[in-house]
Design a binder for these strands. Sequence first.
DNA 1: TCTTCATACCTAGACAGTCTATACATAAGT
DNA 2: ACTTATGTATAGACTGTCTAGGTATGAAGA
Lengths: 111, 111
Amino acid sequence: MKIPELQGHVDGMLLAVLSDGPLHGYGMAEELRRRSGGEFDLAEGTIYPALHRLESAGLLTSRWEVVGGRRRRVYALSNSGKAAAVDRRTTWLAFRCAVDAVFGGEALEAG
Amino acid sequence: MKIPELQGHVDGMLLAVLSDGPLHGYGMAEELRRRSGGEFDLAEGTIYPALHRLESAGLLTSRWEVVGGRRRRVYALSNSGKAAAVDRRTTWLAFRCAVDAVFGGEALEAG
DNA sequence: TCTTCATACCTAGACAGTCTATACATAAGT
DNA sequence: ACTTATGTATAGACTGTCTAGGTATGAAGA
């Protein structure tokens, strides 16, 4: 999939991944790739700025970790991040519903 | 709904609307608003450039029409536009499926 | 008559977020 | 030594939506 249509959905998906527990950026990229069946293979230039944005917005907190001699920045949801994660899922559902309605009814169960 | 997440989906939705027959830009905006239950209220600065893009790409053809003293530009799908409309729907389905998978399984039937 | 609203199109520039390309660094395998 | 995988980061390009402004007609109401 070519990915400009990701616009506006990346943040929500990152929050969704972090809802299952703290993780570092590289790990989130892997998890996104895994969950989406390879569909979403985020560029580094996408994921790191997104995480910084989210942290600036107070939705994430981070701490440095060293594992096997390599350092990682591990992110976790703040309280407002948890709320945002729920909110983003709701937004996605509404968006999905609206787009489905535009594309028309019948053939959509095939998704 | 705030609409940056529309990015990349507008073209497909316009093609979807035109799959039901020729229509002019203003009418498409109305139809999009109607089908989406008011969710998608496209700015004119969004819809007209999008239509021009689509026509430049050879997916649409247009002709001027005068109705009640007002002129309209009526768009219709070209042959490649029809193919693109099908393709875009398929792309949307794949995208939807992938995002759903990222957001996690259970609660998604609620959409 | 004048104003306002709905219809109808258009565009320049702002803006936001993704992508490309590059850089740095460690560990493990060949 | 070299490559691959892990891991983070940023500048600048790019794309597409949004803001805000413009043009124009017709109908309704003050």
